[in-house]
């Protein structure tokens, strides 16, 4: 069963494009990545799912129910961490969290304590005394305290130090193992890589592709690094399937997708110092998706 199903979702702010015909679905129990550069439409999509904004056209369902029509009902089971965390500044952390909890039925208030302990968050501090990272922690506890079935994270790791990021990922994995579905939006690929099974890539308001992370990494691209002894003939590698070709003094880098034998053929007779064939990082694959169409 699909927990989230987005169908041709479009949002225009006046004439300004938000998102266009976004469609994808998230299965129950998966951790689904949602990646794209800033301004691509990740937050717009998420805000439409939460009925904070009204889509221009298209629709989305969560738990099989229309997002706008049954918004309040659906949100009972959603935990949301906004990309920019702001809370009532004059309140204490504990007050904000209790206030948050007061909107849900049957909240286990001990969870506030235990989650805060894991995230190393001081409940007695005032919100306006907190650093950005600590506010983020408040957001995390606030998003998880009612044991949601669907967790929506919009750029969740900004401001968290690596140790906290690790704890946070562990927390999300644990929630996931307990049955929660996760939609994880980010522009940092390494974190999506760590956590997610599938990923939707959004660029300029439209979904470029939905892919299995493993397929994306393993079966598609190889990263080549060639160290030359002499002069590099770039035209030699004018071959279909080669992308992101860069020359740096005596070193040639490129990504290749296709029959590996084509490359081996081309390597014959080349005067090489060294040759490296690697799995590309997601970043590198990603750059490829992001290259503007108008580039040669």
């Amino acid at each position: 069963m699909n927990v989230i199903e987005i169908n041709q979702l479009t949002k225009y702010y006046g004439k300004h494009r938000g998102i266009e015909n976004v469609s994808f679905s998230v299965d129950r129990g998966e951790i689904f990545g949602f990646i794209g550069p800033n301004g691509a439409g990740k937050s717009t999509t998420i805000r439409a799912l939460l009925s904070l904004i009204h889509p221009t056209s298209g629709s989305a369902t969560i738990f099989g129910k229309d997002c706008i029509k049954y918004g309040s009902e659906i949100r009972r089971d959603i935990g949301y961490l906004p990309s920019e965390v702001f809370y009532y500044e004059h309140m204490k952390v504990r007050e904000v969290l209790n206030y948050s909890a007061s909107f849900y039925d049957n909240v286990d208030y001990r969870r506030i304590e235990s989650l805060s302990e894991v995230m190393d968050l001081d409940l007695n501090k005032r919100i306006d005394d907190l650093s950005y990272g600590n506010k983020k922690k408040v957001g995390i506890v606030q998003g998880l305290l009612h044991e949601p079935r669907l967790i929506i994270l919009d750029e969740p790791t900004g401001g968290l130090d690596p140790l906290m990021q690790q704890k946070f990922f562990d927390l999300i994995r644990a929630e996931n193992q307990n049955g929660a579905t996760v939609l994880f939006s980010s522009h940092i690929l390494s974190e999506v890589q760590k956590l997610c099974g599938r990923v939707a890539i959004i660029k300029d308001g439209t979904i470029v592709r939905v892919e299995n992370i493993r397929d994306m990494q393993k079966h598609n691209y190889k990263k080549f690094t060639l160290d030359y002894k002499g002069i590099i003939d770039v035209h030699h590698f004018n071959l279909e399937g080669i992308t992101n070709l860069t020359v740096n003094e005596n070193t040639l880098h490129f990504l290749f997708k296709g029959d590996i034998n084509r490359i081996v053929e081309r390597l014959q007779g080349q005067n090489l110092f060294n040759l490296l064939v690697e799995e590309p990082t997601l970043e590198e694959i990603f750059m490829h998706y992001y290259q503007k169409e108008d580039q040669p």
Binding site: L50, L52, S72, R75, R76, Y80, P82, Y87, Y88
Partner: peptide
Amino acid sequence: DHCADFVYTKPIR
């Protein structure tokens, strides 16, 4: 105060 995301994502209309 940029905290609309807080209240309006709660399960209330």
